[in-house]
Design a binder for these strands. Structure first.
Lengths: 229, 229
DNA sequence: CTCAAAATAATTTGATCATATTCTGCATGC
DNA sequence: GCATGCAGAATATGATCAAATTATTTTGAG
């Protein structure tokens, strides 16, 4: 056994150590969150095995996981599709986020280190640049990262799980909305949030997040109502 | 084709129409909720294939689903076990239920038909009988059914999903608590809840549920603290 | 003779299993 | 104490069976 063979083996490990079902899960999750899958679109096992070049067992597991998280929907017959949100669904999501997100922001403000705040700031900058470029997918990605990062700082794994699960539910609809109205007309309260967190004003951070959530989710609601007419 | 043959076929359909992975999922879910699995206990694929006499593919899918729901935990290496709750976890669960359960009870009070209320009453009676008999598993089952039924009446599928997911997380610990202190010393506020719902006093129902949740979850918290010493 | 509805055939997709491969943890020896 | 090998468990594949949808044909009425 020579050195170069060992190097290759080690280099491969970084890739191979992730099980296939994890990779498939992440890929499919990103496809749902950032718009490659539209609401109502069917998701087939065989389609994904061909598209991703994987076996069916890992694909099945990824689909089951995402179905359990509400990101995909079981259609009674054994098909699976991306859920189409009803007006009632949107109301529930707004209600849940209106409670969860401010609470997590409050905790995050109490716990954030300076490094955390710098990281949030850089995510928000990346978001602004994506808007300037009109890069929709990147905008969705950075916006998601910004909020997820706040959840992570809050250090409340169960509540963060719940909040992340909600993103999976409205992700496809959010993409439709943004695709329709463009990224320019989607203002956010991220600057207010960052200011409040820097000032260690947890209540203000919670209020700002609440406004950001309402603003974003109401846009989804309105756009969905128009779309269903 | 004669009548009796037709009957058998129809009778079989009720059993056979459910895919194996659904059955395994339900079975494993009940095992977690009603106490056949203790916190920290490892859950192996091969163990379940032997125990339930099923193939490994359906078992794998059931485990993935329950892992996604937080009912099981991935241990980094590829083992899976029943999660052991920390004090922080309990606090998060109390917080989440304190918001979710009253909200769902409020909606349920507004929407419940007389049949719904009668059904709830019968579930509560069954619960009392289980306490009288000292039947722990039946107690846990009826208590669960009572709350799940309220979620169902509330007609808010996403919020109900979230609330049911929380039960999966503290189910094993609840079992441990009840096994330790017995069913007698576990009072509940179900009578108050039923009275408020009958009177169509949604606020009172929400308050009663909140008290029931706090009472039950605090008992879990205290018992867990003692157990970890 | 044409059209529509029902029955049937064909194709696609999902479910399950048996098997091969890879990885982890542990024990044994140096 | 560290390396090596071994047993057991998880991962992944492809084949096979069953179910459901779609396409096709047949049949009957107008």
């Amino acid at each position: 056994m020579n050195k170069s063979a060992g190097k290759v083996e080690i280099a491969m490990q970084g890739q191979a150590s992730l099980p296939a079902h994890q990779v498939i899960y992440q890929t499919l999750r990103d496809m749902i969150l950032f718009g490659d899958l539209a609401p109502g679109q069917p998701v087939t096992i065989q389609g994904l095995t061909n598209q991703l070049g994987a076996g069916m067992t890992p694909v099945r597991e990824a689909i089951r996981r995402l179905t359990a998280e509400g990101a995909l929907e079981f259609q009674g017959n054994r098909r699976v599709c991306v859920p189409t949100l009803s007006a009632e669904n949107i109301s529930e999501l707004i209600l849940a986020r209106q409670w969860l997100d401010p609470h997590l922001a409050l905790r995050a403000t109490e716990r954030a280190t300076l490094d955390d705040l710098a990281h949030l700031k850089s995510l928000d900058n990346a978001l602004d640049q994506a808007i300037a470029r009109g890069d929709l997918r990147e905008y969705l990605h950075e916006n998601y990262q910004f909020h997820i990062q706040i959840y992570a700082i809050a250090d409340a794994p169960i509540l963060a799980d719940l909040a992340e699960g909600l993103w999976l539910r409205f992700g496809p609809s959010l993409r439709v909305v943004c695709g329709r109205i463009g990224t320019q007309s989607l203002p956010d309260k991220h600057k207010d949030i960052l200011d409040a967190m820097h000032a260690r004003d947890a209540e203000a951070a919670a209020r700002a997040i609440r406004e950001d959530v309402i603003q974003g989710m109401e846009q989804v609601r309105q756009s969905l109502e128009v779309g269903s007419k």
